[in-house]
Amino acid sequence: MSNLLWTFDIVLCGSLVWLAWQTLATADLFKATVLFIIFGLIMALAWARLDAPDIALAETAIGAGLTGALLLSGLAAISQPGTRQQSIKLDREK
């Protein structure tokens, strides 16, 4: 049991680290975002494993869910061309 749990912990931690690294290393931003969301979900497992159900819930809803949604919408927004290009009226600094 303990060994199983131990293995589980190690795998969990390993995947967390791997996901984190991939999030940053992946070339495609969209993929990175998806990886980040997955990271959040796995994180919820870790919270649960650490007897922190409150946080697990919060992580699922906020950490993975909302943050993911925010990142996705942000990603979508910046994938579009800007509506105004360099029309900076009051920017006198330079």
Binding site: P53, D54, A56, L57, A58, A61, I62, G65, L66
Partner: peptide, 9 residues
């Protein structure tokens, strides 16, 4: 476990 944050989320 649970509460305002989770519910709000």
């Amino acid at each position: 476990p649970g509460g305002a944050f989770q519910a709000g989320a």
